[in-house]
Amino acid sequence: MLKVLLARAHQKHRTVGFPKQPPVLPDRWRGRPQIDAAKCPDGCRVCADVCPTDAIRVEGRGVELDLGRCLFCPECERACPEGAIRFTAEHRLATSSRNALVLAEKEFQLAKALDEKSRRLFGRSLKLRQVSAGGCNGCEADVNVLTTVVFDLGRFGIQFVASPRHADGLLITGPVTQNMESALGQTYQAVPSPKLVIAVGACAISGGPYLGHAEQRNGVESVLPVDLYIPGCPPHPITILDGLLRLLGRLDSAC
């Protein structure tokens, strides 16, 4: 017993200060990309050519980057001869619509909080069922860590539950493989209404690296309505947490 207590003292209190304090992220972490199209040489499309998921579209002098497809790999940033595209440390990536994920000239629209009625229902207690539908276990792993002492999801009243019947919504990872489509549909049916659907990761939003494969459905949207999109490959746990809290209106407007 003494050993257990001594170990407790050794391991210390390790829950992150987020969201009250800004998150601490690795300096090489690739957050929301920033494009300065003014720097682009005429006719250059190097970034679009190296992008593995064709997330980048160059038209005339405009460059669009679809975060829903982006794998946050370092290829475009490394290939750009002018430094026009770079990954920032911005961790806030979640949106309420698929279109909002397309970075262009316009301002990036972060996810909006649910309406008043839904927030009364889910705001202080949100139970989610996670479904992996073709995920590589990367998104699953970084969703799972939210339940560790570091992120301590329980302090926000959010919990992953074992049965869809106990859930207020689904958090889905993976491109929705053909072989998971029916199980995903049945799980969705088993969640009582009103219910939320959260798509986490490039696969769940667009098919990710598997985009266009006949064995999958190019993301959740093709089979279910989606309420929250959290891009990344995989998204950092802080990005996922930020998205969930944003949806529930649990972040100060300054965040």
């Binding site: 190296v50 593995p52 590589c136 276990n137 990367g138 792993a141 690296p209 490959c233 995989p234």
Partner: peptide, 13 residues
């Protein structure tokens, strides 16, 4: 250009 992403996500862990 997709080869490496396939390999990186064969088993994401």
């Amino acid at each position: 250009k997709r080869t490496i992403p396939y390999l990186e996500t064969l088993a994401g862990d």
